[in-house]
Simulated assay, not measured.
Amino acid sequence: MDEDHDDLPLGPRAEPCETAVLDDWRKAEASNAARLARVAGRLGALDDRLWRGPDGWRHRLALIEAADLSWFAGERIGPDRLALWISLRLSGVQDDTGALARVGWAVRRLTAGPGAVVDLSAFLDRRDPDNMSNEAEPFADRASSWTGMMAQAADLHPITRACMGFHLWSLAGLGQHGDRMEAAVTAARIAACEGKGAVFAPLALGGTGGLRAGGPPADRLERWLVRMETAGLTAMRHLDDIEAWSAQVVTEMSALSGKTPAALRAVLTEWPFISAAMAEALTGASRAAIQRNLAWMEARGLIREVTGQGRFRMWRAATGS
């Protein structure tokens, strides 16, 4: 007669049913209600600030957020390299153009584009290949599983829903093609889905600890809210600095003639780092005019050269951040 053996390998673990998963996240939201309200208020303040501010602010924050998320995803693309890639499609010899393209996608989705929940395939720029094997699960099926769960969580606050969607990403079978970056960008858009000025909610500006997996939903949401609050404060301080810098530059450059000074100021507001070639392409001014104005601004401490080299120089606004 066969004997039972305690050391037999365990079979596959059953996934918790959708109702239980949603209930866990509802309980997590209830247990973090006070902090959630505070973070939602800070996000609302950022949304209003961006709604009243120039469009360049949104682009600037998106570039910085995408660069920070790239480190979380293991791509490690700095905002200077990212700026060169997006504006001029320039990359260094050692740069991974695939990684640059993925982070460039993040910038596009953090500034505009379709909503993630409306059409996830379009949002991610993902489609099934024509030669997909019969055994492979179509992306549309995996996407519908995730969007279905998100639809059932419509009663949750968008910030909670974003956190839940991020942590359910791999469980839904969406964990390919740089999924950590995609999941974070998708969550950032969902968290700010009710805003008018903020296209996304900053998640990485204060560090990426909130994106760490582990623990029950209540713990994950608490970490998410702590880091999101820090990221929101960091974003507001950054906008304070660039707004003060812009006002100073307007005053100091008022005596200069021509269109180049104002155009260059706008570019430095929109981009965290610029090169002369970038400024030339983005403003339409001549290289000589760009270099003359950059030299004038650097001499007066309005911008700082950050590369420390003679060629391929880059500058940033001389703000406090």
Score class of each variant (00 low, 15 high):
residue 2 D to M: 09
residue 4 D to Q: 13
residue 6 D to W: 08
residue 10 L to Q: 14
residue 12 P to M: 08
residue 16 P to Y: 04
residue 18 E to I: 10
residue 19 T to K: 12
residue 21 V to L: 12
residue 26 R to C: 09
residue 27 K to G: 07
residue 28 A to D: 02
residue 31 S to D: 15
residue 31 S to M: 13
residue 32 N to G: 08
residue 34 A to C: 10
residue 35 R to I: 10
residue 36 L to N: 04
residue 39 V to E: 13
residue 44 G to S: 09
residue 47 D to F: 05
residue 49 R to T: 11
residue 50 L to S: 09
residue 52 R to N: 12
residue 52 R to M: 09
residue 52 R to K: 13
residue 53 G to A: 15
residue 56 G to Y: 15
residue 57 W to V: 05
residue 57 W to K: 07
residue 58 R to Q: 09
residue 64 I to F: 07
residue 64 I to D: 12
residue 65 E to P: 03
residue 68 D to C: 11
residue 73 A to T: 04
residue 76 R to L: 12
residue 78 G to R: 11
residue 78 G to E: 12
residue 78 G to T: 13
residue 79 P to T: 04
residue 80 D to R: 15
residue 81 R to Q: 12
residue 82 L to R: 00
residue 83 A to I: 05
residue 87 S to I: 04
residue 88 L to A: 09
residue 89 R to Q: 09
residue 89 R to M: 01
residue 89 R to A: 12
residue 89 R to V: 07
residue 95 D to W: 00
residue 95 D to I: 02
residue 95 D to Y: 00
residue 107 V to M: 01
residue 108 R to G: 08
residue 112 A to C: 11
residue 116 A to H: 03
residue 118 V to L: 13
residue 118 V to Q: 15
residue 121 S to M: 06
residue 125 D to W: 12
residue 128 D to M: 09
residue 128 D to N: 10
residue 132 M to E: 12
residue 136 A to E: 11
residue 137 E to S: 11
residue 138 P to R: 06
residue 139 F to R: 05
residue 146 W to A: 01
residue 149 M to V: 07
residue 152 Q to A: 15
residue 154 A to D: 15
residue 154 A to S: 15
residue 155 D to F: 04
residue 162 A to Q: 11
residue 169 W to N: 01
residue 172 A to M: 06
residue 177 H to I: 00
residue 179 D to G: 05
residue 179 D to I: 02
residue 181 M to I: 13
residue 192 A to Q: 07
residue 194 E to W: 03
residue 195 G to I: 00
residue 196 K to C: 10
residue 197 G to M: 01
residue 203 L to C: 03
residue 204 A to N: 03
residue 205 L to S: 06
residue 211 L to Y: 04
residue 212 R to W: 06
residue 213 A to D: 15
residue 215 G to W: 00
residue 221 L to N: 00
residue 224 W to N: 05
residue 224 W to K: 07
residue 227 R to N: 14
residue 230 T to D: 12
residue 231 A to L: 07
residue 234 T to I: 14
residue 235 A to C: 11
residue 238 H to Q: 14
residue 239 L to T: 09
residue 241 D to I: 00
residue 242 I to F: 00
residue 244 A to H: 11
residue 247 A to P: 08
residue 247 A to G: 10
residue 249 V to F: 04
residue 254 S to G: 03
residue 254 S to E: 14
residue 254 S to L: 08
residue 255 A to D: 14
residue 262 A to K: 08
residue 262 A to Y: 09
residue 265 R to N: 07
residue 266 A to I: 11
residue 267 V to P: 02
residue 267 V to R: 01
residue 268 L to N: 01
residue 276 A to C: 10
residue 277 A to E: 15
residue 277 A to T: 15
residue 286 S to W: 04
residue 287 R to V: 14
residue 289 A to Y: 05
residue 292 R to I: 04
residue 294 L to V: 09
residue 296 W to L: 10
residue 299 A to Y: 13
residue 303 I to A: 01
residue 306 V to N: 10
residue 308 G to A: 02
residue 313 R to S: 05
residue 314 M to R: 10
residue 315 W to G: 00
residue 318 A to Y: 05
residue 320 G to C: 06
residue 320 G to R: 13
residue 321 S to W: 10
residue 321 S to H: 14
residue 321 S to C: 09
